[in-house]
């Protein structure tokens, strides 16, 4: 099955082959991932679903370069980032420049206004403040929150905060976005709106997006999904249902 998928892999997007992750050692060791194969093309939004404890967060952490896998291989675009114990040096720069994160809670920086929350990433990478803010405002407009650009995070609604955090994930145009239950705290209308935005942005910026979710409302929107069970992935074809433009927040 995985061999079939692998034959179609172009040279960019996310490619994961035979990834395993073991927590701990000896008697107490837990094999959280037992062989994950996954491919996400640029511009594609792929769902990652599975029961609790199946290894979803573990997979995201491996991809997000915050924990080290035990074996296997991960490729981001043209670059191998992990290969059986070898990993690229600068994980911090990898996270900053190549990966966007969206979380269940938006985790905006409470002491920065909306614009600077988004502009922070390019600023950290050394882009001048003015240019960083211009990029931020541009994205905020695309995500329909430009009118809240100078508000503080605490003054935003949950849906607005989540859109700001998507803007933050997108601002340095990373080839990959990892979203961990991004719709969990939102009502169905807002949840669908967030997913629609992720689809639109993925298409617009040719970003490969992985969305971990339990959310029954949004599962039908994926064209393709990976089901993870007991540390192993199974590819599934989803309904790929269109989200109406009427679902504006």
């Amino acid at each position: 099955m995985s061999a079939h998928t692998l034959t179609q892999i172009p040279t960019d997007g996310i490619v994961i082959e035979g990834l395993t992750k073991r927590y701990g050692k000896g008697d107490t060791a837990v094999d959280a991932l037992k062989g994950v194969d996954m491919y996400v093309a640029p511009g594609e939004v792929v769902g990652l679903i599975g029961p609790s404890g199946s290894g979803k967060s573990t997979l995201l952490k491996c991809l997000g370069a915050v924990i080290e896998p035990t074996s296997g291989r991960m490729t981001l675009g043209q670059d191998v980032i992990y290969d059986n114990g070898w990993r690229i040096d600068d994980l911090r720069a990898l996270r900053r420049d190549r990966i966007g994160f969206v979380f269940q809670a938006p985790y905006l920086i409470p002491f920065l206004d909306v614009t600077d929350n988004v502009a922070l990433l390019p600023m950290l990478a050394g882009v001048p403040n003015r240019e960083s803010r211009e990029r931020a405002v541009e994205l905020l407009s695309a995500l329909d929150v430009a009118h809240r650009a100078s508000a503080m995070p605490a003054q935003l609604s949950g849906g607005e905060q989540q859109r700001v955090s998507i803007a933050r994930a997108l601002v340095s145009r990373p080839p990959v976005i990892l979203a961990d239950e991004p719709t969990a705290p939102l009502d169905s209308e807002r949840a669908l709106s967030v997913i629609r935005i992720l689809h639109e942005m993925a298409h617009r910026f040719q970003t490969a997006v992985i969305v971990v979710t339990h959310d029954e409302k949004i599962i039908p929107t994926f064209k393709r999904m990976y089901h993870i069970r007991d540390g192993r992935t199974h590819e599934e074809i989803g309904e790929g249902r269109e989200i109406g433009a009427t679902l504006n927040v």
């Binding site: 911090r92 720069a93 990898l94 996270r95 900053r96 994160f101 985790y107 920086i109 950290l124």
Partner: peptide
């Protein structure tokens, strides 16, 4: 702590 974890995740230097 949460914000610091996010700052580190998105690639803020320890020095910063």
């Amino acid at each position: 702590i949460r914000e610091i974890a996010v700052l580190k995740l998105i690639g803020t230097r320890n020095r910063t």
